[in-house]
Write a protein that binds this DNA or RNA. Structure first.
Lengths: 341, 341
DNA sequence: CGGGGTCCTGGGAGCGCTCTCAAAAGGGGG
DNA sequence: CCCCCTTTTGAGAGCGCTCCCAGGACCCCG
């Protein structure tokens, strides 16, 4: 039972004294006890217990140059990314994996370019061992701010072209997933397959368009409508599609939210899904997929797993064990068939 | 322009040498420069700039015993609290205020009792100067875990009875706000005013019930229905209410989400709002209030402000300037009149 | 022009820990 | 039983910074 000491916290020195060993030996025990004989280990451990000793983190960091903390940089350019379920899942994965590595999550909330100076100084100040960031918009200056800090970084999502290509990232196989979705539609015998895409400044949206084109090399431009990943934009895009191409019989929508909107429009226009128009989404977002009518066929990606992977990559970077820079990881996707296609 | 030094980061010593002053003086300048003559300040600043000096955080913490970081403890008992807009606003306020104080936010994500040991050790380990936590359910063991760490803490929301009463908290005036809402309904000439409450293990829900009873001392129990703060539960409670008390002409709902559900039920049952039944919510949640038909009259609370206040209170605790323990803060609420009442 | 402040500055002692290196202890073979 | 090698332990030197304190510079007034 630790003593309820009111005074200053006990130091390693105190533990060593109590155990009758040197500070060095006490340190060894506290750090795993390799190379110390059992009886001494026992003594030190008892002293630690009795004194309620907890290592001083700052002192340890000062000499080891490691502080067991990782920054997660959240940029909130315009929307409420924090309450985005996609994002939440990823952060959850990160948090869990970080815990497994006994590392802490320091949240860096960036609200605008005015914060860049602060962030840069913080990252460069040795407060954290590394950083995790998310590539959002290609016009964002944040990646370069992070790079300037010369600190190990892993991105979530493929960064926009122009970002230092040596920075590893974790992303799902957007292009492959899109291909699978479109092939499924083709396999269903659909002839006029459209695509409702995301904003062209996000690499995930671009990659999904590429996947669509990979399969439908000669797709007519009139079959391509652009949305912005919101439900509303999906509904609108579907309406436009129906107006221009009444013959459309299949749609691959770049995310579930827009697919939900598209489904709504289809219902309002009296089109049967999947009989008249088959719909495939992307993300397999639980909160959307279940409530959709009919249930949405979509491309699944393991978002939490991607978060964990980001941490694993960063840890490998920090250990330096993986010779050189670890390669980026593209996680697999899989088509989940439900009623809409 | 900072030198692109590849080697080890420059130390204060290096800065002092370059500026031709002592380490002590360099330190003084770096920390504000009080009591140093202008020309020397100038010289040191230039050296800092030229060397690209950034203070070593660990070394500083080692001697000052302050590390400029605050833990935000997020317990996720069952639901996705992280994506809760209420919560997001509060964390945003915390983040902003922390930034203003030049302090960092360390996110501690608690997923279950299994994490308590880890959290406790972390908080007690001197990694952070203080902690911010949210009082969620009265049966949660977390508050006591935090208390055990003997670290300054401020709660968001009034803690359940049984928690150490000396721990300061920030909460809005739930009871007063509820009173105002009910009085408004009374002022509208409503005779049979019902209340749809939140779960009884949350103090905010209890306080709002109290406020309702303060005004309607003799309210019949049949006018009180319990929900769980979800839209669905609000819809259900309203339906039950209508079944038992068809004469109800006013409802105070304990939060906007449930009020939105109640409004839906009212519409489905063909009751006009506010003509037949006037409805008042609580929270003034932007994402709900705007989309409701009719627009929801509700009790406004400054959620982001509460987050900021939590930080301010904690900072006062840490400074020790406020003699003794700062008092908890109850922030005011205000009725926002829209169409529903 | 000297005395007594006041204001600045530098020296140096740690903060608590890790880690290197040398000394001590233990062990085995000749 | 002694010597050499391996394992275990301890002494001590920092890590980079702040802060106390003493000494020097400077200033104003008599």
């Amino acid at each position: 039972m630790p003593e309820q000491s009111t005074g200053p916290r006990p130091t390693l020195e105190a533990v060593a004294d109590r155990a009758g060993v040197s500070r060095a030996t006490a340190s060894r025990v506290v750090n795993g006890g390799a190379g110390v004989r059992a009886p001494l280990v026992e003594k030190v451990l008892r002293a630690v217990e009795e004194l309620g000793y907890v290592p001083n983190h700052a002192a340890r960091t000062l000499v080891t140059r490691r502080n067991g903390a990782v920054a997660v940089i959240i940029a909130e350019p315009e929307f409420r990314i924090f309450s985005d379920p996609f994002f939440e899942q990823q952060v959850r994965g990160i948090s869990r994996e970080l815990t497994a590595h006994d590392a802490q999550l320091v949240l860096l909330w960036v609200e605008g370019p005015g914060d860049h100076e602060r962030i840069s100084r913080y990252l460069g100040g040795g407060h954290v061992d590394g950083a995790l960031a998310f590539s959002l918009h290609s016009d964002d200056a944040l990646p370069s701010v992070i790079e300037r800090a010369r600190i190990p970084v892993v991105f979530g999502g493929r960064p926009a072209p122009g970002t230092d290509p040596s920075v590893p990232f974790v992303d799902c196989d957007n292009r492959g997933g899109a291909r699978e979705a479109v092939r499924h539609l083709v396999g269903l015998g659909r002839r006029n397959i459209a695509h409702i895409s995301g904003p062209p400044d996000q690499t995930s949206a671009i990659d999904r368009i590429h996947g669509y084109r990979d399969v439908l090399l000669d797709a007519d431009p009139s079959l391509l409508r652009r949305g912005d990943f919101t439900e509303e934009s999906g509904a609108r895009a579907m309406a436009e599609l129906l107006d221009r191409r009444p013959d459309v019989d299949g749609v691959f929508v770049a995310n579930d939210l827009m697919a939900s909107g598209a489904l709504r429009t289809l219902r309002e226009r009296g089109a049967r899904v999947p009989e008249d128009v088959a719909v495939v989404g992307f993300d397999d977002m639980a909160s959307v997929v279940d409530r959709t009518v009919p249930a949405l066929t979509t491309v699944h990606q393991d978002i939490e797993g991607m978060g964990r992977l980001m941490v694993k990559l960063l840890m490998r970077l920090l250990d330096g064990s993986g010779s050189g820079v670890p390669a980026s990881v593209i996680t697999p996707t899989s088509l989940v068939r439900r009623a809409s296609a």
